[in-house]
Every structure is written in structure tokens, then in C-alpha cells.
Design a protein around this nucleic acid. Structure first.
Lengths: 351, 351
DNA sequence: TTGCGGTGAACAAACGATTGCTCTATGTTA
DNA sequence: TAACATAGAGCAATCGTTTGTTCACCGCAA
């Protein structure tokens, strides 16, 4: 058992409160120099560290944040977590990680546990549009920040990218390459990124005067397996697409697998563009053309916003939206990979 | 502010202890049916959830575990974490994630914080040989389990794979393909996996009667960047290797990059074998031949061992060692990728 | 000698829950 | 009717800190 204040007090023949004041170098009270040094020696000798649980109870703060995401196995969220931790650890916080697998019930269960634990704040990257869980957080007055996806436009503190713009860039890029039948592996309409990236896709088509063929938009969700299935659907059309804009890189990777299995060459037979620029994207062969977003910064910015909220106590629904950038690689332009050698991916914080 | 026991007691005109007993369906005490239902209604109505911090103080358990790893961005640890969480969440635990980047001081700092928070147990996957941090854990009597790496042979609870065997398999495979000049991108000698995989590499060479050329062993560490640098060194030898056994898949990926940049064909000019079989390995082109270990199970088994330790209070230095399996892909045998299509990676829990 | 200011440290009340024990009715039995 | 068992609920201590308040004491000035 670690040593307690009371034990130290007994050993030093003083009252626990005195030890506490020395340990915290309480500015308000006066301690005799001799007493102080005696206690300080004792503190060092015993390596006293205050019981965080007791401290948490008294001070009503746990110095714990929680991160709720779909799946840490997805590289997107690994980078996000590092950003958050890098923002939180230097300020004395540690971080609980909760995976939901995109299942609302699990998200709910995790948030309830977290509330019971009195975590100081929550970063949520697994939210749905009009998510009751987010409403619940608001209602609980738990400090929180949404990342990547939002729940209701402009209502919550949020860090993410301009999804419409990113999807537009991606689609315009394919149009610029001469593609007309451009398929979209789309995210669920229950998720903001799903909706907004569709919107950007449609906007780019409309702007170019290309009619949107509903057959070319297939809902894939955000992970590899769904991307593969949706891709199968698209390739079985009588007039299959010559290019694909996938809602995420993982979805695009699913499409890679199918294309490869069918013997389609990328980009000659099928051009593919993704979204997020996860580390994996640049390592694929050919490299995946994608929309770069500064994931690590999503995390560190979100952590900072959350800590500000916690420390000031005010919840400003501030939104930080990064402008995404297209990164062209070999999956859309043959030979583009070689031109990229040695060029680091670019980041562009905005607003 | 969430509702407290005292407030509920006031509203129900009973003593807080009575509410507590109802909330916990205390088996020892008798409560009148009418009182019970009245209180139960109140509990539901107010959605009362006991303050976990206060509970933690009183009961001396926080229902929090901690996972300490080098870097969650490494796919190895993503899978590991999921295994742990999957083992812990159903039992009511949530999990703190701490990244050390392999820096001992950060590991130490995290462990100290965790101890102050009174986490119920720690899973450590970033340990060094003879690690003072592990000694400290032992001394603190904090329940813990080491994963993947160990600190001192046979002393600590441990989950991992048979590294010597895995490295032997990998090297034997290359020998079997006719390679004689086989390079090793080696892990640090301060880490058990580094040492044991070297040992397996040397054992396989010796067994085949191939003299070990010291120039062919270059220390790379466990991540991509180091793998690339070490590979450069090896390729600048007057007699460069024709095959590489890399201590981890990430290191092997570093080697891929260099080989590609130099225009070397894999596997014709350079065969490469890795270790761990991270999800990425199968997606590379060509697929990476590697030693499969059941990472997710490392996590779930470690979580179970830890919980057992926590609940029984006894620390048995039990070791669970999985037998690794070679997975042959295109990085060592041309065309092997095609044969693998649709065949899932195999798992083999042993002991 | 009395009173006062100030110093240094103890006191005690929280924070919110848990739990062994005590106490008071009520009902049962002799 | 008296003694006693029992159900039902309150009491109070405790977990380890923090912090506003009180208290004892000393030296000094009047």
C-alpha cells in the first residue's frame, strides 16, 4: 500500500493538513522553515504521491480525458489519438480510449461509464447526425469536442475538415483527367462525412455538367470490407465506372483489392481517389491519390479546445475547420508516384 | 451536477445508506418492499449512477486498466489494444492508453501517474531487458502483465510468442530458397525480441552450416525509418545480401522503400521476410512473407491474466507463449501472393 | 502586568459512497 | 402480560485529500 498523508503526519508529529500544505506548497499558509524541511525530506524519502482518487473526489477533477472512436485499428484513429495524447499529457491528463465499432449502443454504454467515472472531458469521433449521445453529453454538461464528424451543424465544439470541399477536389480531379462515369463509394447518410462528401461529389459533377447517374453511387460505409462489396456492385453494372471517388482511404483500399482480383489495372482501367491520407495511402502500389487532412492536428487541436473548456468552464461551440488538400499519386495518374518521391505530404491549417 | 446518494435520500425521506443498499441490491440487509420500490423508482427516474471516484476511494478499486506501448500508430499495437479492450470492457473495466515512443523516461513518467491514479492493473508492451520500471511495478505490487517483450526471463507474467522459433522459421525459409547471404535488420539488444530474434537468425544459419557474416547484421530498431537506414547500409556492402530477415514488419517496410528506390525487384533481386504479420503485411505489393503471431489474442489473453491477478490478488509469473507460424507471400517467393488469395491468415495458440 | 499582533499548526468539515453495528418498533410466544 | 426474536432503517466510521477557520503561544509595546 502506498503511504498516505495520515501516516506521514504521524511520522512527522504534525497534522495531516500540514503535510498536505507542504506537499502542495500551499501559498496561503505559513509553515516554519524547520517543519517544512523536515516534512519535505519525509516526502522525498517515502516518494509520497497523493492518492489521485481521493484527490479527484475532493477537487472534483480526475485529470482523465476519454476518446471515443470507432476503431483504433483504423490508422486514421491511431494518428488522431496521438494528437490528442500529445496535447493532453503535458498538462497532466491521461486518456481513456474507447472503441465503438460504430455501434450506437456501445457508444452509449461507454459514455455512461465515462460519466460515472467523472472523466473531465470527452473527445468523440464516432458521432452520428442528430446523435442522442451528443445531446446527452450536452445535457450532462460534460465538456466535449467532436472530431471529424459532427452531429448538428454549428451546435457543438468541433474539429474537422471541410468535407464538401475535399470531396469536390477529389471529384474535380477525376473529371479533369477526362473521366465521365465516376463512381462514388459513399458513407452512410447518418454520418456527416458521408453526407457532405456525397454533396461535394455531386457538386463537382453538376458544375462540370455531368448528370449524376444514381447507379454510380453505392453506399459502402467507411471501412475496407464495405468498400470491396460496393466496388463489386459497381463493376457488375452494364456500364461500370472508369473512376472511383471513395469516401475514405480504407474504402478505397477495399476497392483496390477487388480491382486487383478482377485484373483491372490502376489507374489505366480504373482510377481511384480516397480521403484522409492515412499513412498507408502512400505505401500502396500504386500510391493512393487522396485528400489530405491533418489528422494528428485534429487531435492536438481538439485536446486544446477541450482543456480550454474544462479550465474556463465555458462551452463555446467553436468550430475549427481545416481546408483539405488533394495529394495526387499513382492511383489516378500513371507515374505520379515517382514524382512524389521524397516530397512530404502537406498540411494546411486554416481558420 | 449528477445526483448524489444524499440528495436521493433526502427526497425519499430515508438515510443515504438505505438508498445505497437498494442501488446495490445489498444481499445482507432487509429492506421493506414498499421502501425498496419507492427508492427504485427514484433511482430510475433520476438515472442515478454512483460516483465512480467516491466508489473507487471507498472500495479501493477504480475499474481502470492501463496499456503502455511504444506507439499506437504502429498497427501491431492497434490490434493489441483491441484485444485488451475486448477482454476488459465486458468485465466493467475501461482502459487508459499511454504511448512512450520507446523512451524510458516517458514510460517511467506514465507509470508513476498511473500508480498515483490507482489504476487496477497495467499491461506493458514497451519494456526493456532488466527494466527498472518493471522492477518498480513489482515492488509497488501493482498487478501487471508484460506483452510481446519481457524484462527478465521467467520472472513476470508474460504473453508473447516464441521469438527464437519465429526467427528461426523465417531464416530457414530463406535458406531453403537457396539464399546464403542473408541480412538481418536487427532489433536493439536492450529488448528481448531484439535479442531472441537475432538468436533464432543465428541458430538457423548455424544449423545450415552458413557462417554468420557480422556485416550482414545491422541494428535497425523496430520501426520503418530505422529499417530504411539499415537497409541502405546493407546494400552499400561490397557483397550485399540477397535476402533480408527483418525483426519486424515495419522494419521490413522500411526495406521495401529502399529496395524500390534502388530499382531492386522483390523477391527476384532481394527477398524479404518480416515478423508479426500486421494487417498491412498482406496488402503490400508484393505481399510480405512474415511470421504470424496472434496479436489480438496477445491482448485478450493478457487482459484475462491481469484480471485474474486483480481479482485473486496473487501474482503468478505465468507465461503464455504462442508458437508463431510462417506466412509465405510474394516478398520471398515470386507468385506466392496469388496462391494466398482468399486464404485467411492462420492462428495457433499453444502451450 | 495587561493586551495585542502575528506566527505556526491543529481542527474539522467536506467530497460521495459503503457497510458493520445499533436501535426501535412490531409481532410472536410462553 | 412479559419476554424475546426479528424486520426495517438509521448511525457513524471510513476511504485520502483539501482548505477555511480556530487556537495556542510567543514577543513586544504600553
Amino acid at each position: 500500500m502506498p503511504v498516505t498523508l495520515k501516516e506521514l503526519a504521524a511520522r512527522a508529529n504534525v497534522h495531516p493538513s500540514t503535510v498536505s500544505r507542504v506537499a502542495n506548497s500551499d501559498p496561503g499558509l505559513r509553515i516554519a522553515a524547520t517543519t517544512r524541511t523536515r516534512i519535505e525530506a519525509l516526502l522525498r524519502e517515502t516518494e509520497y504521491r497523493p492518492n489521485g482518487v481521493a484527490r479527484g473526489l475532493k477537487l472534483r477533477q480526475t485529470l482523465v480525458l476519454a476518446v471515443v472512436i470507432p476503431d483504433i485499428t483504423n490508422p486514421l484513429f491511431g494518428a488522431l489519438f496521438r494528437g490528442i495524447e500529445d496535447g493532453a499529457t503535458p498538462r497532466g491528463y491521461q486518456v481513456l480510449l474507447c472503441n465503438t465499432d460504430g455501434i450506437p449502443e456501445r457508444q452509449r454504454a461507454h459514455l455512461h461509464s465515462l460519466a460515472a467515472r467523472r472523466v473531465d472531458g470527452v473527445i468523440l469521433a464516432s458521432t452520428f447526425l442528430k446523435d442522442p449521445a451528443v445531446r446527452w453529453l450536452r445535457h450532462q454538461r460534460t465538456p466535449y469536442v467532436l472530431v471529424n464528424r459532427f452531429s448538428e451543424e454549428g451546435v457543438d465544439p468541433f474539429v474537422g475538415s471541410d468535407d464538401v470541399m475535399g470531396a469536390t477536389l477529389a471529384t474535380q480531379h477525376l473529371i479533369g483527367l477526362g473521366h465521365v462515369r465516376i463512381g462514388h463509394l459513399a458513407g452512410q447518410p447518418t454520418v456527416s462525412t458521408g453526407v457532405l462528401r456525397r454533396k461535394g461529389y455531386h457538386a463537382a459533377l453538376a458544375e462540370a455538367g455531368i448528370p449524376a447517374d444514381p447507379d454510380l453511387l453505392v453506399e459502402s460505409g467507411f471501412v475496407e470490407e464495405g468498400g470491396a462489396q460496393a466496388m463489386e456492385r459497381l463493376l457488375s453494372l452494364s456500364q461500370p465506372p472508369t473512376a472511383i471517388y471513395a469516401v475514405t482511404d480504407m474504402t478505397a483500399i477495399g476497392a483496390y483489392g477487388v480491382a486487383r482480383k478482377r485484373g483491372l489495372r490502376i489507374p489505366e482501367d480504373l482510377a481511384i481517389v480516397g480521403y484522409n491520407d492515412i499513412p498507408l495511402a502512400g505505401r500502396l502500389i500504386p500510391g493512393l491519390t487522396t485528400v489530405h487532412v491533418p489528422i494528428h492536428e485534429f487531435g492536438s487541436v481538439a485536446a486544446r479546445m477541450l482543456l480550454e473548456q474544462i479550465e474556463t468552464g465555458v462551452l463555446t461551440p467553436r468550430r475549427v475547420v481545416f481546408a483539405p488538400q488533394l495529394v495526387v499519386r499513382g492511383s489516378s495518374v500513371a507515374g505520379a508516384d515517382e514524382q512524389l518521391v521524397g516530397r512530404p505530404a502537406q498540411r494546411s491549417p486554416v481558420e
